[in-house]
Computed example of a mutant assay.
Amino acid sequence: MQIKIALFLFVGLLAFDSSAQEVKWLTWNEAAELAATEKNPKKIFIDIYTDWCGWCKKMDKDTFQNAEVAAYMTENFYMVKLDGEGKEDIEFKGKVFKFVPSGRKGYHEFAAALMQGKLSYPTTVFLDEKLNMLSPVPGYQKPKPFLNIAKYFGDDIYKEKDWKTYAEGK
């Protein structure tokens, strides 16, 4: 009996991934309110996904749960999950964005605006503290390249260097 318990605990420890970290995701409204009310607001990071997107799920698991990525992002950004096919209205800068039925599903106008009309999932979007667009980044990103992109915006490197110069030094 003790051998079974020990074996069970050992297998449980092997299955536990200590490098994974859970991220606290916000809604758009929660992040926008924090940005408007906090004395020293953070930038906003938006992960635009869909329920059917396999690469979105892979990025959630591989990239956003990476301990280094999660810690950096939590410290420097309000992190928002935005369903690119979500049905709820979203208000941004005095305009109400809605779901638009199209084809079998449809799309959300806010997601389309953030992705600059290119409906590609996943797309991650970086906004500054005043909710101005810094850049959309389409496609799946592994943890290390993603962290380089996040630091480019999060550490305000974009104010001093263009992306190409920064990326060449990495």
Results as ranks from 00 to 15, higher is better:
Tyr78Glu: 10
Tyr78Trp: 11
Met79Asn: 15
Met79Tyr: 07
Val80Leu: 06
Lys81Phe: 04
Lys81Leu: 12
Leu82Cys: 09
Leu82Ile: 05
Asp83Val: 11
Asp83Thr: 10
Asp83Trp: 06
Gly84Pro: 12
Gly84Lys: 04
Glu85His: 01
Glu85Leu: 09
Glu85Thr: 11
Gly86Ala: 10
Gly86Met: 07
Lys87Ile: 10
Lys87Asn: 05
Lys87Thr: 13
Lys87Val: 06
Asp89Trp: 00
Asp89Lys: 13
Asp89Thr: 08
Asp89Asn: 13
Asp89Glu: 15
Ile90Asp: 02
Ile90Glu: 01
Ile90Thr: 09
Glu91Cys: 00
Glu91Thr: 15
Glu91Val: 14
Phe92Pro: 05
Phe92Ala: 07
Lys93Val: 01
Lys93Cys: 02
Lys93Gln: 15
Lys93Thr: 01
Lys95Met: 04
Lys95Glu: 13
Lys95Thr: 12
Val96Cys: 00
Val96Ser: 03
Val96Ala: 00
Val96Arg: 07
Val96Asn: 02
Phe97His: 14
Phe97Thr: 02
Lys98Arg: 14
Lys98Cys: 01
Phe99Ala: 08
Phe99Ile: 10
Phe99Asn: 10
Phe99Glu: 04
Phe99His: 11
Phe99Lys: 04
Val100Glu: 13
Val100Trp: 00
Pro101Asn: 10
Pro101Asp: 03
Pro101Cys: 09
Pro101Phe: 01
Ser102Arg: 13
Ser102Phe: 14
Ser102Glu: 14
Gly103Asn: 07
Gly103Ile: 11
Arg104Met: 13
Arg104Ala: 14
Gly106Pro: 12
Gly106Ala: 08
Tyr107Asn: 07
His108Gly: 08
His108Leu: 10
His108Pro: 09
Glu109Thr: 06
Phe110Ile: 02
Phe110Asp: 01
Phe110Cys: 06
Phe110Val: 03
Phe110Pro: 04
Ala112Gln: 14
Ala112Ser: 14
Ala113Lys: 14
Met115Asp: 05
Met115Ser: 12
Met115His: 03
Gln116Asp: 13
Gln116Asn: 14
Gln116Tyr: 00
Gly117Pro: 12
Gly117Tyr: 09
Lys118Trp: 06
Lys118Glu: 14
Lys118Met: 09
Ser120Pro: 00
Pro122Tyr: 06
Thr123Glu: 10
Thr123Trp: 09
Thr123Met: 11
Thr124Met: 12
Thr124Gly: 00
Val125Gln: 03
Phe126Asn: 02
Phe126Met: 07
Phe126Trp: 10
Phe126Asp: 02
Leu127Val: 03
Leu127Ser: 02
Leu127Thr: 04
Asp128Trp: 02
Asp128Arg: 07
Glu129Asn: 04
Glu129Ser: 13
Glu129Met: 10
Lys130Val: 04
Lys130Asp: 15
Lys130His: 13
Leu131Glu: 12
Leu131Phe: 06
Leu131Thr: 11
Asn132Gly: 01
Met133Glu: 07
Met133Val: 04
Leu134Phe: 05
Ser135Trp: 02
Ser135Thr: 14
Pro136Cys: 05
Pro136Asp: 12
Pro136Lys: 09
Pro136Phe: 02
Val137Ala: 14
Val137Lys: 12
Pro138Ile: 08
Pro138His: 07
Pro138Thr: 08
Gly139Pro: 04
Tyr140Phe: 15
Gln141Ala: 11
Gln141Cys: 03
Lys142Ile: 00
Lys142Pro: 00
Pro143Phe: 04
Pro143Tyr: 07
Lys144Ala: 15
Pro145Thr: 07
Pro145Ile: 07
Pro145Lys: 09
Pro145Trp: 07
Pro145Ser: 07
Pro145Arg: 09
Phe146Thr: 02
Phe146Gln: 02
